[in-house]
Structure formats: C-alpha cells, structure tokens
Design a protein around this nucleic acid. Structure first.
Lengths: 288, 288
DNA sequence: AATTATTAAATGGATCACCCATTCAATGGA
DNA sequence: TCCATTGAATGGGTGATCCATTTAATAATT
C-alpha cells in the first residue's frame, strides 16, 4: 500500500471518456476488416471533449454572449473531471475569443460577443508557419479590397461615408503636422471603416484579416525609413468622391492604383524590414 | 505553522510575471495623473505570456513546422512555471492548430504545418455567437466564390481542371446510383478543388471557410428531405467547360445561377432544418 | 445618518506531488 | 534472426493546497 490514502482508485467516476466514440460505432460489420476506410481520429482527450461540449451549447443557443458558466470548481465536478483539465479547456476557449475569465467573487467564465479579430490571428499563424506567403497575402488583399470597394459602393450608408471623411481629415492633419506613424494608424482605421462600409460583417472580417498584417509592414517601413506616400490625402479624397457617387468603376480603379503604389513603396529597399520581426512584434492586441 | 512543510514560500522563483508590464512602465510622470490615456490591458497571465513567446519564436523562424519543443517538464522548468500552467498554454496552441501533442517516449509538442481549416472554426464561432448571421455568410459566399471563379479562370492549372472533372464524374455516378449524401460530399469536394484552382492559398482558405458551414446546411437539408438539386451534373459540366475555356463571364454567370438555385432550395420549407442543430453537429472534423 | 475601514467569502491563478497510459528503443531469450 | 519483455520518457489526468483579486456584508468612525 502506498503511504498516501490512495487518492486515485482506478474506478473513480470519469463520465466523460465514456461518451467518446459516438461516431466510431458505425456500420462496421462483425468479421470484416473495416474495408478501406480508416478513421484518422486520435483518441479524444478530456479537454477537447469539454471544448466541444461548450461549443455545442453555444451553437444550440443554450449559452449566449453575456452568460456565465458555473464556477470552475462546480463545473469540474459536474463534468467529472479535475479542475486542472477543465481549466485547460476554458483557457483554450478564452484564447479562441469565445470566453472571458474574470477573477474575484462575481467573477467566472463569461461568454463573449464574437471577436472578429480572431481571424487575424489565424492569418498571422499561417504566415508564421509558412503555410501562406506574403505574396499570396498581398495578392489576396488586392482582390478582397476590390470586392470590398464594390460592396461599399453599393451599401455604404451616409454615416459610413462621414466616418471615412472624418478619417481623411485626421490623415490630412497628421500629414501636415508630420506625424508619419499616426498617419499609418489613420490608414489602418481607414481600411477598418471601409470594411464596415461594405455592410457585411463576414466580408468586413475578411478584409480586416488581410489588411492587419499588411499595415504592420507599412508601419515598420515608415518607422525605419521615415518616408511615406506622397499625395495620399488627395487620393483618398478622390476615392471618397467616387464612393459618394457610387461610382464602382472609378472607386475600384482608384483603389487598385493606390494599392499598387503602396506595394511599390514597400518593395523598394526590401532589406530595411523583415517579415519575421514585423510578425514577432505583432503578438498582443497591437497598438490601440 | 501549517501542518505541511510549507511548500509555497512567497519568494519562490517565478521569472515570468516579473516581465509582465513591459508596456506599462511608460512615460507616466511622477505626480501627473496619467493624462487621458488608460491602458486597456488586463494583467497578463502566465499562460498568455507563454503562448506569446512560443508564437514569437514561430514568427522569428526559430521554430518551424516539424520542430519539437522541449518536454513539458523541462520547458516548465526553463520558463519557471508549473507544468500545469505550461500545459494550459500548449493546449491553447494545439487548439489553435499551431502545435500537435504526441504521447510516448519520442513524443512531445511538435510544431504543425499551418492548418487552414482553423479559419472555419472562427467562422463557426462567429455564427454560434451571433456576431455574423446566416444571411451575411450566404451573401459573402456568393461574392467570395465569384472572386474565386475569376481567379480560377485566370490561374487554374491543367491538373486542377482534371481534378474537377474527376469530381464531376464521381458526382454523376453518385447521382445515378441515388447516393444523395455522397453527392453532397462530392459538392463539398468540388468547392474545395475550386478553391485550390484559384492558385492562392489565402483566397482558398477564405473560400473554404465560407463554404464549410453552407455545405452543412445542404447536407442537413438533403438528409431530412431526401430531395436534391436536379440537373446538377449538367450544370457542373457547363461550368467546367467555361473554366476550361477561361471564359470568366460565362463561368461567373453559371456559378451565380447555381448558387441562387441552391439558395432557393435551402430556403423552401425552412422549418425542416435548424441552424442550431447543424452547427452543433459540426464540432469535430466533420465527416472524412 | 452617512461615510469609511475592515472583514469574509467566492473565484480565478498557480503550484506541487503524484499516478496512469502510451510509446518505443534496448535487451534478452528462443 | 526474430519476437517477446522490459523500462524509461512522455503526455494525460487528479487532488490538495495556497495566493491574489474582487465584491458584498459588516463594523467602526465621524
């Protein structure tokens, strides 16, 4: 007998793994060697199961943004798992932007309103891991923004256009005062507002995800070289005029021209910046 | 004195939290009340710090797909954190598709090649949380696929087209043999192949993410009603002919028409299916 | 009575010390 | 040569314990 009070009887309650293989108990006949198809699945672990269950409750609408999950100690007991493994699941969901964990009495795990910036994280990871290339991302950006411009011409509300105009004014001010980095921040906001003007949050999310990293590069380029696009504000004004007139072809043409010019600026003297460094600095929520 | 051997001296080594507030130690002057700007940051927790550091190593190229991280016990010691909290971080990164954890000797945490399907998960979460609507997703899908078709016409290689033709043959066979659900699977594969034919992995990833959930609906619809699109194979053949001829306008027109027809099929008798159920069943890797 | 400290409880954050199951290389015998 | 056994490394998981933060209830003070 061990010295401790044998805290791990193998027969302890563990309801979770019992429900693992709902999908695996399929048509497989008695003696047949499972034909050609092998299930590529790895044994499902407790924390995956927990994540899946919570996501299921979200999908079913049982859990909605603002709702609070039971306290860790209670929920762990309900699920028949240790608090540690429950936390692994909760943390994963927090990283995924689904939950927010808050300390203190009246704290707990709260369901969050969907954070559209999670897609940016995915895009960043794909770039870090070399699954996609900068070239592909830039090319995709041109196409996605062109689509965004078309939709904005069709759907932009008056308030969207006014927000864009206000942004261009800020850009103008930053330009005249020589605040180059603020100007980059304005540009970032410009694309964000343009995405909203598309009138479709899915498209907006996609536009943001292909723009965020790009703006990082621009920021790094401007910060290191001190140079910046000439005539930016004028081009923005022209573009906004086309948008206001719902002139798709003019707006598209102007946007395409601008993106090309930015691209050329980025590509000259490429040694001055590094994908690696720009990506590595992008970890937290970037600058506010 | 507590009964145990006081295992938690407050002075224990904990190097991580010491480096927390790199950003907070900013220009704040002595007596001034921090002006207007409040840092919106919540105190960074150990597991976030660990995730950020590993992602940083990925971004810098120090860690590449296939690389193995130190064993949990070693890495925890290196970072000065407990094994549990390290695991919270590793699990989060595994959920994000960045790592794969493997048991056994010679096991460990391996950096994965980027998993483009992570974007699908984000899209699903956004839908579950009500951040985006089915209507927005459907609309976005039409636009994104139109873009995909344009790119496929421009970039599809011979092998892409052949893969699509083989897919249509399988679809034809499934249709003639009355295997409706297999036919849906073929359709899923069709869009996957079309995405690849676009020649841009970013665009392909986006196309997949807006298509996956949609195909779930189609699957549920077909499974519950037993009806399916008439003339699907013929339309696919026409589309492929246009793609082969690089006829953008014809291909676009055919795709748009098809998407509209599918949409009408889905919308008739809407009571037969439920967003909630379709989403909830989508948890694992879907059917192989 | 109003205000301000104080206290106590609930909760997430983190640690430690285990134990189990799996995997695979090394070992050794048939 | 081949196959079974063994054992160490590793991730998977548990439970007990303590810390830090937050909030509400309570007590003390003005």
């Amino acid at each position: 007998m061990p010295t401790k009070s044998s805290p791990h009887p193998s027969t302890r309650a563990r309801p979770l793994p019992a429900a693992r293989r709902e999908r695996a108990s399929d048509v497989r006949t008695a003696g047949a060697p499972a034909a050609v198809t092998f299930r590529p699945i790895h044994t499902r672990r407790a924390f995956e199961e927990i994540c899946a269950r919570i996501r299921e409750q979200l999908a079913l609408g049982v859990l909605k943004p603002g709702d609070k999950l039971p306290a860790e100690r209670d929920l762990a007991q309900q699920l028949g798992v240790s608090r540690n493994v429950l936390r692994e699941a909760l943390r994963s969901l927090e990283m995924a932007g689904v939950l927010r964990l808050q300390k203190g009495v009246k704290g707990g795990a709260f369901v969050q309103a969907g954070d559209t910036s999670r897609m940016n994280v995915v895009m960043r990871d794909m770039l870090s891991l070399g699954t996609i290339s900068v070239r592909e991302l830039s090319e995709a950006r041109v196409h996605v923004l062109e689509l965004g411009v078309r939709l904005a011409c069709a759907n932009a509300r008056q308030s969207d256009i006014e927000a864009l105009e206000a942004n261009v004014e800020r850009t103008d001010l930053a330009t005249r005062e020589g605040r180059l980095l603020d100007r980059v921040e304005c540009a970032r906001e410009f694309y964000k507002l343009l995405a909203e003007a598309s009138g479709n949050k899915v498209i907006a999310m996609i536009m943001d995800s292909v723009t965020e990293i790009h703006m990082r590069f621009v920021y790094a380029k401007v910060a290191s070289s001190g140079v910046a696009m000439a005539g930016l504000v004028e081009r923005r004004r022209k573009f906004l005029a086309a948008l206001r007139e719902r002139d798709v072809s003019a707006a598209t043409r102007l946007m395409r021209g601008h993106l090309g010019a930015v691209q050329r600026m980025l590509e000259q003297d490429p040694g001055a910046m590094s994908l690696q460094v720009a990506l590595a600095e992008m970890q937290p929520g970037m600058r506010p």
